[in-house]
Design a protein around this nucleic acid. Structure first.
Lengths: 137, 137
DNA sequence: ATAAACCTTAGAGTTAACACCAAGGTCAAG
DNA sequence: CTTGACCTTGGTGTTAACTCTAAGGTTTAT
């Protein structure tokens, strides 16, 4: 299978596949005489793994770690894999908390603003941002 | 006030202040003979506005928009300001939803994995990512 | 008068995950 | 035998918000 076919099968671009190769996520199984990358079912599976890891929120770097483990599973422990997962989970939760803080502040700001067509001279959003204690009132 | 003093007052780096200047968020009120940036209370206030906007989740670009409006408020409406705020709010909520999806998948994966020191040969996390329908089981 | 602390500019580096481009080689069909 | 679709490499561009560096000028304290 050439790169374009694999890309079409997976719904990604050929650039993406080459990018993943550069970053040690997926190598073609062979090259044709003329230098074309050739892939087979193994690579297809591996790409599906990568895309699924992505869906779950893993970065390419983390996915790469998981792949390293996967290639010789018996040299690695469940502990390691779960460690990576929990670490990511922590990070995701922290980010969610941060964004929820933003959400709270923003909705508070929006709720108090009339949003009308009159001039912004007394806009409650602007004054809240101006006042030192604006975010806590 | 020279740049270093203002930076110390605000707890930011001088680089940051210069960066904000480049991006039209804050200009010094004057320059000394030798070319040093000079700031006064107005700039201090403005930086506090910027930092508060940041705390609330606004990007520098959005903050810049808010500042544009603030400088001549009576040429702008509450509608505009609230528009920017609501748009940001939407974005934040969308991002939260996405991350919550990750969170759900990751915690499901983590929960099912023993996390022990035994080899990862049968690690449920790896197999879930291998199986096509792994994320939905 | 000299060292330390401060300031200047311009420009490069960082992170993530690609997208896009140029210049050219390859392959199948008509 | 020539289009057109495909492939190659190597390189640049994108976004955000800075951070760091180099090479040099200024100020202040001793």
């Amino acid at each position: 299978m050439k790169i374009g076919e694999l890309a079409r099968l997976l719904g990604v671009s050929t650039d993406t596949l080459r990018y993943y190769e550069q970053h040690n996520l997926l190598s073609p199984s062979a090259r044709s005489e003329s230098g074309y990358r050739l892939y087979d079912q193994t690579q297809l599976k591996q790409m599906q793994f990568i895309l699924r890891a992505k869906e779950v929120g893993f970065s390419l770097k983390e996915t790469s770690e998981l792949l390293q483990i996967k290639v010789d599973k018996n040299q690695h422990s469940c502990e390691e894999v779960k460690g990576i997962t929990l670490q990511k989970l922590e990070l995701v939760r922290a980010r969610i908390a941060e964004l929820q803080c933003f959400e709270k502040s923003l909705s508070k700001l929006a709720k108090r603003c009339c949003g009308g067509q009159e001039s912004a001279d007394f806009c409650s959003i602007l004054t809240a941002l101006e006042d030192v204690d604006g975010t806590h009132k």
